[in-house]
């Protein structure tokens, strides 16, 4: 453990802003990278399902 108290952990020896900002940006980038393809997948599936239904009705 490098830190004695929780307040020290948040403060990071005066560099809290920089450290936490970096980790926050990393979290945002990682989450966006995961969420984006998942949303895309849902969109593709609904679109293709709609197309299949339409084709079935047409035939």
């Amino acid at each position: 453990m490098s830190f004695e108290t929780f307040a020290e952990f948040i403060d990071m020896g005066g560099h809290g802003l920089y450290v936490w900002l970096s980790y926050a940006i990393a979290l945002v980038v990682i989450v966006l990278n995961i969420v984006n393809p998942l949303m895309q997948k849902r969109q593709i599936f609904t679109e293709q399902a709609r197309r299949l239904r339409r084709e079935k009705q047409a035939s």
Binding site: M1, S2, M12, G13, G14, H15, Y18, V19, Y23
Partner: peptide, 14 residues
């Protein structure tokens, strides 16, 4: 990285 790794003697926690 955040809790257990030691701070750098030059740059501190940054």
């Amino acid at each position: 990285a955040l809790i257990y790794a030691p701070a750098d003697y030059q740059q501190g926690n940054s």
